[in-house]
Nucleic acid binder design. Structure first.
Length: 369
RNA sequence: GGGAAGAUGGCUGAGCGGUCAAAAGCAACAGACUGUAAAUCUGUCGACAUAUGUCUACGUAGGUUCAAAUCCUGCUCUUCCCA
């Protein structure tokens, strides 16, 4: 195996482990801040690191368009380019197959995109090209190129799409260049259909990957629907490899997914919400735009020890948002990233202590209510 | 002193006889945000009931008309030009 994963503790289905890569270790369960365009929006990489993140995400689609994978390779790779020395996982562009639905055309060969930047030029993304780009970026964890479907979809459409993604998974694996400390993850698909999820899991296991992701969730379905998919899908994935739930999610999603055997998460939520005024606090969220914070001298979360909460008040950050000052978005994003990493630390500790179930139960009792 | 233009909802500013409680932007208030086309998007935004409703409103006092923010007259104020 090109990257190593070892599980040190379990608590129910929850696992506590370490992934070793060429750029360092990842303590799991892990939350990976999203740095789509070679930046975790609003944060210095030092702040991301200090918050406790071991690994961040980059994006094939965005970086191939601008500044191009070849340029990043020429400049020494994505780590050097963006000043992040830790591990990087790159998304394959599969999510953009869904999110840029109006701008692409899918064939068996791959996906032709109309650039969302200049609108004119067409770019072809195939499994082979996606893997090549991720290699050029020097990504530690390459994701297979897949089709992320919206929701809801018919079982027939989901089956057709999933099977194509599985063929693409084989092509992605074939195109992947093995190196020590670098790996490639397969992506399970099949929408909310158990038979398809199980078929997908079996196919991926047969191909063999360094880790197994679950895609196509948290795209509008209710949380209990997502949990139900995890209930039957995660046990079908190879136990000894990392399990990565793509694009998830809220703190409650994460706590529930860890209980179902997920080891890795990524989500734009802490940074996007941080830019739009939503701050994560113990038990839920606040909207710092609300006028009730105008004179509130308390920190965003009085129980938080992050640099933002140690130094700035809700009233100040409320003022920054009100005045549309960029520092407001930066501070709230930093706090949110810290909050997510705090949550992961608590999750890991609870698993190590062998009491994850009671931790999760307590968490859900406090959450939003 | 003479001439010209104008006064619209918290602000800017459309409307120039009925489809006007009145465009649009801003401000205000609230909501959303899940592998980032997002420093974004959505809703409310005269009052009271808050589904269809009622009332008070486009400087002010009158007038014309079935009907006026829109037309006419007086007044008040503002800006600009000439003395």
């Amino acid at each position: 195996m090109s990257i190593k994963f070892s599980i040190s503790h379990t608590s129910g289905r929850a696992r506590r482990g370490v992934i070793s890569t060429a750029h360092g270790e990842i303590q799991t369960p892990a939350f990976m801040p999203v740095g789509t365009a070679a930046t975790v929006k609003g944060l210095h990489t030092s702040e991301v690191r200090e918050a406790g993140a071991d690994i961040i995400l980059g994006n094939t689609y965005h970086l191939m368009l601008r500044p191009t994978a070849e340029l990043i390779a020429h400049l020494g790779g994505l780590h050097k380019f963006m000043n992040w020395s830790g591990p990087i996982l790159t998304d394959s562009g599969g999510f953009q197959v869904m999110s840029l639905a109006g701008l692409r055309k899918i064939t068996e060969d791959g996906v032709k995109f109309t650039s969302h930047i200049d609108g004119g030029e067409h770019h072809m993304l195939t499994p082979e090209r996606s893997v090549e780009i991720q290699h050029l970026l020097d990504s530690n964890i390459t994701m297979c190129f897949d089709e992320c479907l919206g929701w809801p979809v018919s079982e027939a459409d989901a089956a057709k799409s999933m099977r194509m993604s599985m063929r693409w998974a084989q092509r992605s694996k074939d195109a992947f260049v093995n190196r020590d400390g670098y790996g490639i993850f397969g992506i399970n698909q099949g929408s909310m259909y158990k038979d398809l999820r199980l078929e997908s899991a079996a196919t991926l296991a047969e191909i063999g990957f360094d880790g197994y992701a679950i895609g196509g969730l948290a795209i509008g379905e209710a949380q209990d629907v997502m949990f139900e998919v995890l209930d039957y899908t995660v046990p079908a994935l190879p136990f000894e490899a990392p399990h990565y739930l793509m694009g998830v999610g809220t703190p409650a999603d994460i706590v529930g997914a860890v209980a179902r055997g997920i080891d890795m998460f990524d989500c734009v939520m802490p940074t996007r919400s941080g830019r739009t005024g939503q701050g994560f606090v113990r038990g839920g969220t606040i909207n710092i735009n609300n006028s009730k914070f105008k004179e509130d001298d308390a920190p965003i979360d009085p129980t938080c020890g992050c640099p933002v909460c140690r130094q700035y008040s809700r009233a100040y950050i409320h003022h920054l948002f009100n005045a549309k000052e960029m520092l407001g978005a930066m501070l709230l994003s930093q706090h949110n990233i810290w909050h997510y990493q705090d949550l992961m630390r608590e999750i890991r500790a609870a698993i190590e202590a062998g009491e994850y179930d009671s931790f999760a139960e307590k968490f859900f009792k406090e959450w939003e209510g």
